[in-house]
Amino acid sequence: MVKQLSTQKSKKAFYLTIFFLIILNILIFLFSLSFGRYNIPFLTTFKVILNKIFNLNMNLDKNLEIVIFNIRLPRIIVVMFVGSVLSQCGVSFQGIFNNPLVSPYILGISGGAGFGAALGILYFNNFFYVSILSFLFSIISVLLTIFVSRTGKIASSINLVLSGFIIGNLFTSLLSLLKYYADPFSKLPTIDFWLMGSFNSITRKEMLYTLPIFIIGTILLILLRWKLNILSLGDDEAIVLGENPKILKLIIISICSLLTAISVSISGIIGWVGLAVPHIVRFIFGPDYRYLLPISALFGSIYLLLIDNISRTLTTSEIPVGILTAIIGTPIFIYVLRRASK
């Protein structure tokens, strides 16, 4: 009897946590819609939303609708998904590489994305093409990483991480080359600003293009969450427990690389989310991926949305969100590391 209760208790606690986090997500989402340089009272926001959804024809300022639905909504939704997806990819990569210090950028994505974006800024100067090129080079860098890691006789996780480091650095050097030749008054600041990460340029279009992939990727990772437990024990033991680690790892790497590449291509390089969120969640809820992955997904969105709200409103001009995630992420990370090792 006692045993049964204890397993049911942990499941119950998990469902309660999920429920609580979903409510929290909705509340912070609504709050973020009212919040900004142009502050809209919470009740008014609520009215505008109801008016739009149910076509109530209430007598409201048309500008409010534009601010809420055309400017803030796409950005907030994309921020939430990017936060969620970076956290999921960080936690998944930590599992398959058996290393808690691995980030979603471990396979060289940040270098490739930065180079692609710089190329786009230099030759097109159109946000859409910048995103496309950044996405393309992210994928190229991951494919190169996988290719390089396979030329060794043992295709181990260490090989992959090393190859990611090499390819990432290669693209970072190529990026420096582009920056060196870029016009220092117009192009160079744009490249630098892009590299700091920002959700400034998100419109409806970006939201509609990226949302389906974010949703499908999230569903797939959540379905595979038990396998991450098995993979986290290392390749040999995954075989002992009946898995085919090579194929399984390739599937998870593909999903995560696609999700990370898409995030980076529309928001720049946002560091520390994929590292800080998994550690906070693991510290509170334990390492079991059955719970860790869904909770990280829901906590990551809250975490990045709160930081993005700060970036939007702290000063008159927006602070790049990538700077804030690092400034806020590092002390949290240090705290969790110190508490966890006690």
Partner: peptide, 28 residues
């Protein structure tokens, strides 16, 4: 030799031995 990377509870770790009987996309 077993490398303990993440601090799984003993019960959760032992439970992983059930993996061959757990269908894909499912949990114990």
């Amino acid at each position: 030799i077993h490398k303990q990377t993440f601090p799984y509870k003993v019960i959760d770790f032992v439970l992983m031995g059930r993996n061959p009987y757990i269908s894909d996309y499912s949990t114990p």
